[in-house]
């Protein structure tokens, strides 16, 4: 009798184990394709500068995100000296099809984002022309004024949750960096 009881216990435990396995394997079926798209990924940063027919495009592209492939930097041509350009930034996620426009999200959350555009060429002056709901700049739209010819770099930084307003530098704004890309540019 005693033995019979313990055999019953063994059977019960074995049954529970099998039951556990079954529950687990059933629940597995509800999502077998977990390869979610990287919904937040920014693969492409484009800064288009136009002054009438004079259009210069700076493009950063990194299709595999944090993956091993190195990003590409494309600058369509030199900027013209002593010229006023209208600048516009576009952020895309090209892993989605069609490509997702992330610029819109940044615009919607303008008070939590800000672009900082700086150049090593001291003559270049960038002014942000758009503003968020609190009247602080976002930087999607800007004007860029070139001075004398020269060459150097141009860096675009997007901060998430920066201090707003700030003194115009990314260092003062703090926050966490969503974009930081640097292009080699020339002014002729």
């Amino acid at each position: 009798m005693e033995n019979y009881k313990s055999i019953k216990t063994i059977k019960l435990l074995a049954l529970l184990f099998v039951l556990g396995l079954t529950i687990a394997s059933c629940s597995n079926d509800d999502d077998d394709h977990d390869h979610d798209h990287e919904e937040e990924l920014i693969t492409t940063v484009t800064y288009q500068l136009s002054s009438g027919m004079d259009i210069v495009t700076l493009e950063f592209q990194d299709i595999d995100g944090d993956g091993s492939a190195a990003p590409t930097y494309t600058v369509s041509g030199p900027l013209t000296a002593n010229t006023i350009y209208t600048g516009s930034i576009e952020l895309l996620n090209e892993t989605e099809s069609p490509a997702e426009d992330i610029t819109e999200e940044v615009e919607d959350e303008g008070d939590e984002h800000e672009f900082f555009i700086t150049s090593s060429i001291s003559d270049i002056i960038v002014t942000k022309t758009d503003s968020d709901e609190d009247g602080n700049p976002i930087g999607i739209e800007s004007t860029l004024v070139t001075g004398d010819p020269g060459s150097g770099t141009l860096t675009i930084i997007l901060k998430h949750e920066p201090t707003k307003p700030n003194d115009g530098t990314s260092a003062d704004a703090g926050g966490s960096t969503d974009v930081e890309v640097t292009f080699n540019i020339a002014v002729q």
Binding site: D31, D32, D36, E38
Partner: peptide, 20 residues
Amino acid sequence: LRYQQNDAISGTGVSPLIPD
């Protein structure tokens, strides 16, 4: 005897840190 299963729940919008 042990059986373990990891399920990376879909819908996070990022590829899972640990796969199924």
